[in-house]
Design a protein around this nucleic acid. Structure first.
Length: 340
DNA sequence: AAGACGCTCAACCGCGCTCGT
DNA sequence: CACGAGCGCGGTTGAGCGTCT
């Protein structure tokens, strides 16, 4: 990659450090400086975004329009959300990716505040890592089945557990909102900018969803807003209901070994469904495939299981536990794969 | 303590689509 | 219709940092 040496990721360097580099070329590349960020933000605050090439010139930035657009969309926008991908977001990413594949921007549209870049990075670093650890290709049927039958139900279970904890604790009722509104971009925007920025609406929306404390029902899958079979923007057939739940239903009919997802109700295809409706009482399902039921599952010495039989959930902000819990996910998935 | 290794994520690149001329 | 500019998207890179040995 022909990037200037000394590139510093995640680090804002002073423009003084790079003046020598500037003399070498007209267009700057590499990490953005504080001055550049401020120039870009101020210009967009006054003139709006779009027409990126001319914007770059008019703002006095020695950057390509592409670079400015990327910096704005992925980092400087006021509604960009940073921090760990929550359980719900993970579930949604898995679900949407199972339907659309690597259509990152499309997936990102359903995760307020998350960028396609962030989701793409999450997929590559977390999901593909899991596939690698399970010794199967991320695009293989085996791994997709693992996601559908094991990983996603497990996420739902943990979300339910977290929701229960949140309900039990009045203090916890605000934890989800806190998570969602955590860490906007590092710069302070004045009130005028915030009130006029389009992103502010999205941020309010995200907060509203979180504060609803009804996470499963909060999700709006693309099918929620349309009825009947249709095709996506790439001409692929898109089921009116979740491909995921369709798959569960089909598999449970065709497979003598009932999948864990049998405990998820098949949705009415004519009914607009969210997760809450399509997945009833996931926390109650039994892993009876290969003779493993909830008792043997819970009795096993998996890491991170607490005294309540919950997984990595201690009643606190569940997003804090996310990364620790992932290790138990790997343990769990590997155990389950061994039984298939 | 220090070198090796692995992970994360901001940033870049190339391709293809859209739209105006 | 042809062409080019602008833009968006998906793939890839690599610096920095944390962890392991």
């Amino acid at each position: 990659m022909d990037v200037k040496p000394g590139r510093v990721s995640n680090t804002i360097r002073s423009s003084h450090e790079e003046e020598e580099d500037d003399a070498m070329m007209d267009l700057r590349r590499g990490p953005w400086t504080v001055e550049e960020d401020l120039a870009l933000m101020n210009y967009i605050a006054n003139h709006g975004e779009g027409r990126w090439n001319s914007l770059a010139r008019c703002a006095g930035l020695k950057r390509t329009g592409k670079s400015c657009r990327l910096r704005w969309l992925n980092y400087l926008r006021p509604d960009v959300r940073r921090g760990n991908i929550t359980l719900e977001e993970q579930l949604l990413i898995l679900e949407l990716h199972s339907r659309w594949g690597n259509r990152w921007s499309k997936i990102a549209q359903h995760l307020p505040g998350r960028t396609d870049n962030e989701i793409k990075n999450y997929w590559r670093t977390r999901v593909q890592k899991h596939a690698k650890q399970l010794k199967c290709d991320v695009n293989s049927k085996q791994f997709k089945d693992t996601m559908r039958y094991l990983w996603m139900p497990r996420l739902v279970e943990r979300i339910q557990a977290a929701a229960s904890s949140a309900t039990a604790s009045t203090a916890a009722s605000s934890s989800i909102t806190t998570t969602i509104t955590t860490a906007p971009n590092p710069y302070h925007f004045n009130n005028n900018f915030q009130s006029t920025g389009a992103g502010h609406v999205a941020l309010q929306q995200a907060t509203l969803i979180g504060s609803n404390n009804d996470l499963a029902a909060s999700y709006t899958t693309p099918e929620n807003s349309s009825t009947g079979a249709s095709s996506d923007s790439f001409g692929n057939q898109v089921s009116p209901v979740s491909e995921l739940t369709d798959y569960y239903t089909t598999m449970s009919v065709n497979n003598n070994n009932p999948s864990p997802m049998e405990y998820f109700q098949a949705p009415n295809p004519h009914h607009q469904v969210g997760y809450r409706e399509s997945m009833t009482s996931p926390s109650g399902y039994v892993f009876n495939q290969g003779g493993l039921n909830s008792h043997s599952f819970q009795a096993a010495s998996a890491p991170e299981q607490n005294n309540n039989g919950q997984w990595g959930m201690d009643g606190g902000d569940f997003s804090d536990n996310l990364w620790n819990v992932e290790e138990s996910d790997m343990w769990f998935l590997q155990q389950q794969l061994g039984n298939i």
